[in-house]
């Protein structure tokens, strides 16, 4: 029962907090540019307005055009629910839940790209093609980061992986995950969320034809995804799960805020990179995560006295 209540509370937290993040980023950007900027709660207003609106669909669209955004939203929400939030709000975890998380993100990608192709527009086709193509590199970086965390915690369940402080490679891991965060959430320098129309390249292109409640779900899902990646990044570096409850939550919130400020500053100070540099940047992210993995592996492989001997699983001689 407590588990259910706890899960519902966490669900509510994700639903309510997520739309705050784009508002914070926009405030940071406005502050750097010396503008006043839209209110922090702007996305909430937008969502409410979109939910009240009607829906205009393309004449070519099948029911998948409506189903895609919901399926993507549910998948993102389910992925978010797998993440622990600090010490007490630990998700119902199991060995391998992180794999499920990565693949739920893939479900969201499939659903969004599917809905984009419903319209038969070449432009949206381009967006979908870019999304699924760059995801190949992003996924390599994410899974390498996951491996690094798995190696340094000797576990494949999220609460155990994310609880301790990042090891020696934490800085590398953070940098790698930050680049992935920018790419997966379509921020500068990968994409520009401001150029809502022609100049946008990846994500916003795919949702051009959506309107009303489905668009609200897409925007909300994007906010959840942003929060998910920032929480993952913060928990990978800070020992959120090892701190006392209040301090842990505080550290998590502060960490997410720092990440958002980082995104805002990146967006203010950098221009969008040329399109052909995107794979290069993602490969950099992959390499950063790879080095983090190798550092973690060296750390784990070196004989530590308190660690149970790893040869437990390897009775007999190794032949290779």
């Amino acid at each position: 029962m407590t588990c259910l209540i706890e899960t519902l509370l966490r669900l509510a937290a994700w639903l309510v907090v997520a739309p705050l993040l784009p508002g914070i980023i926009n405030k940071v950007k406005a502050w750097v540019a010396g503008r006043k900027g839209p209110p922090v709660l702007q996305l909430y207003y937008d969502l409410a307005r979109l939910w009240r609106k009607g829906v205009v669909q393309s004449t070519l669209a099948s029911p998948g055009f409506i189903a895609g955004p919901v399926v993507g939203w549910i998948a993102l929400l389910a992925a978010a629910l797998l993440l622990p939030l600090g010490r007490h709000a630990v998700a119902p975890s199991f060995q391998g839940d992180v794999i499920l998380l990565v693949y739920l993100l893939a479900v969201a990608r499939f659903a969004t790209a599917w809905a984009a192709l419903e319209t038969g527009s070449a432009f949206e086709g381009m967006g979908a093609a870019r999304e699924v193509s760059f995801a190949v590199l992003a996924e390599a970086a994410v899974i390498t980061a996951v491996l690094a965390l798995a190696v340094q915690s000797d576990s494949l369940s999220l609460p155990a992986m994310l609880a301790p402080a990042g090891g020696t490679g934490a800085l590398l891991l953070a940098a790698g995950l930050f680049i992935v965060l920018l790419a997966e959430n379509c921020r500068v320098p990968f994409d520009d969320p401001n150029t809502h129309l022609e100049l946008t390249m990846i994500h916003e292109v795919m949702v051009l034809d959506h309107s009303g409640p489905p668009l609200a779900l897409i925007l909300h899902g994007a906010a959840i995804k942003l929060l998910l990646f920032s929480v993952l990044l913060v928990e990978a570096v800070l020992p959120v799960g090892d701190l006392p409850a209040l301090a842990g939550t505080g550290a998590l919130v502060a960490g997410v805020l720092v990440v958002m400020v980082g995104v805002g500053l990146t967006e203010s100070l950098l221009a969008r990179a040329a399109f052909r540099q995107v794979p290069l940047m993602l490969t950099t992210a992959f390499l950063l995560c790879l080095f983090a993995l190798l550092v973690a592996w060296r750390g784990a492989a070196s004989p530590l006295p308190e660690r149970p001997p790893p040869t437990v699983r390897l009775p007999g001689e190794t032949t290779s």
Binding site: G54, V55, V56, L60, F123, L197, D209, P214, L217
Partner: peptide, 22 residues
Amino acid sequence: GVALLFRRVQRSGGSRAPTWDC
């Protein structure tokens, strides 16, 4: 979720138009 959204779309009397595509 899919069922609920379909209900919502139907209630708002979803209309059709050619693909907008900017």
